[in-house]
């Protein structure tokens, strides 16, 4: 029962979030350097849900599925703060059974190169286990590792390492069905 309620709510939320522009971070001007205070451009009004094209709905779904799951240094367990990210992926996968996915695990550069491939595997398997625990068929998710070979941030500091310790989900089949919960998109 919980799932049946949660899924439609999620979809509406995704469409709204996906189509509205995020406000820019507020800049506090220094009076001396910049006497004229710029008026922030108001965000465009959010479009009504049923105006969203099927294509943009699919893109929003893919964006949600692709949200990164991050890990602590040399760890591969799912952090509590990342479980919500994985919960949303699980909901989308549950309601779109034709979708198949690949989880790819990554590591930062601090561990040794070849062992980072193992660490990447553990991270992708850990994320997969979480989704399987939420009822996703194990056979719908394959896992892969790229170790430290594909950093998001090529830097050599904590911020870069945090970005790079991750699992990434990519849709490898059934992408076109991601809007099929709407009759007009079937």
């Amino acid at each position: 029962m919980t799932k049946l309620i949660a899924v439609p709510i999620l979809f509406v939320g995704l469409v709204l979030v996906g189509c509205s522009k995020k406000p820019e971070p507020e800049v506090v001007p220094t009076p001396v350097e910049q006497p004229v205070v710029a008026t922030p451009t108001p965000p465009p009004p959010p479009p009504v849900a049923n105006e969203a094209s099927c294509t943009s709905i699919i893109e929003n779904m893919v964006t949600e599925l692709s949200a990164l799951v991050h890990f602590d240094t040399d760890k591969f367990d799912i952090r509590p703060t990342d479980s919500a990210t994985l919960d949303r992926k699980a909901l989308i996968l549950q309601s779109h059974p034709a979708v198949r996915a690949r989880l790819t695990g990554h590591a930062d550069e601090r561990h040794t190169a070849e062992y980072n491939l193992v660490l990447g595997s553990k991270r992708s398997e850990s994320a997969k286990d979480y989704l399987v625990g939420k009822g996703i068929d194990r056979n719908r998710i394959e896992t892969a590792t790229l170790g430290e070979t594909a950093p998001i941030d090529p830097g050599h500091d904590e911020s870069a390492w945090w970005q790079n310790r991750r699992a990434e989900l990519t849709v490898i089949a059934g992408r076109e069905t991601l809007a099929s919960h709407l009759s007009r998109c079937r």
């Binding site: 690949r102 790819t104 491939l117 394959e142 892969a144 590792t145 790229l146 170790g147 070979t149 490898i172």
Partner: peptide, 8 residues
């Protein structure tokens, strides 16, 4: 090892 398309 060639890491490509999800395999090694």
């Amino acid at each position: 090892t060639e890491l490509y398309d999800g395999h090694g």
